[in-house]
Simulated scan of single mutants.
Amino acid sequence: MTTVEAPVISKTTAASGLTAAVAILQKWGATGEQGTAILRVSRSTYARAKRRDPGWEVNLDGDQLTRISLVLNMHAALRVIFDNPENHYGFMAMANHNGYFDGRSPLEIIAQGGILSLYEVYRRIDSLRGAQW
């Protein structure tokens, strides 16, 4: 039986991804508390990423890297779906009345901190883009 190992992500690359995810979360209107729950990082790590310190490095686990990836991929899908920056940044804070969201905003759901909720919101946003890639 062969095993597949996850690629090794450098501490510098992890910091760049985290910094990008934090910047996106800020544009979506996430609070610091929501951001730390979504990315499963400490307040100090979140604050450091928010400051965008040059040369900063961080060690993140696979779950944290997956969360960053989902945020970045949601952002990419929203940019394809919406031409207007107000919409592709504002969508995450808008109340959504589709069955899964039940009047809550996508940001409210992902801020609960569960990886499954984060993935489900990503999946539903990604499905909106249809064949637009």
Rank of each mutant, 00 (worst) to 15 (best):
L18Y: 01
S44F: 03
W133T: 07
V4E: 09
G103E: 12
N73G: 03
R52N: 08
S105K: 12
I9Q: 04
A20T: 09
R123H: 07
T66A: 01
D83V: 02
V8F: 03
R124P: 05
S69R: 06
T12P: 00
L60K: 07
D63R: 06
R48N: 14
V4P: 05
A95F: 02
P85H: 08
T36L: 08
R129H: 05
N98V: 00
Y100W: 11
I38H: 04
I109M: 09
F91W: 12
Q26L: 07
G29Y: 05
R40W: 02
I9D: 01
A77L: 00
A37S: 15
P54S: 08
S69L: 02
N84G: 03
V8A: 13
A23N: 12
G103S: 08
V22H: 09
Q34K: 02
E120I: 01
Q34L: 04
L78V: 13
R104W: 10
I24D: 04
I109D: 07
H75M: 08
L107G: 09
Y46I: 00
K11E: 13
A21P: 07
W28Y: 15
R51E: 06
W28P: 04
Q34H: 10
V22W: 05
F91L: 01
Y46T: 00
L128D: 01
I24H: 07
A21M: 07
G17N: 13
A23S: 15
S117N: 12
A30V: 00
L70A: 05
L118H: 08
R123P: 00
T66N: 01
D53G: 02
H75Y: 14
L70Q: 11
I125M: 06
R129W: 03
W28H: 14
W28L: 03
L60I: 11
A37N: 15
A76Q: 12
S127F: 12
Y89D: 10
G130V: 09
I110Y: 06
R124A: 04
A93F: 11
I115Y: 05
G103L: 09
E33Y: 07
Y89K: 02
E5T: 05
E120D: 08
E57N: 06
K50I: 00
A77D: 15
V4T: 14
E108W: 03
A30P: 00
D102Q: 14
I24L: 09
A95G: 10
R123W: 01
E86A: 11
L72A: 10
T66W: 02
V22L: 11
D61S: 05
A77R: 10
L70S: 09
I24V: 14
A20Y: 03
K27E: 15
R52Q: 14
L60T: 07
T31Y: 06
V22Q: 11
G62N: 10
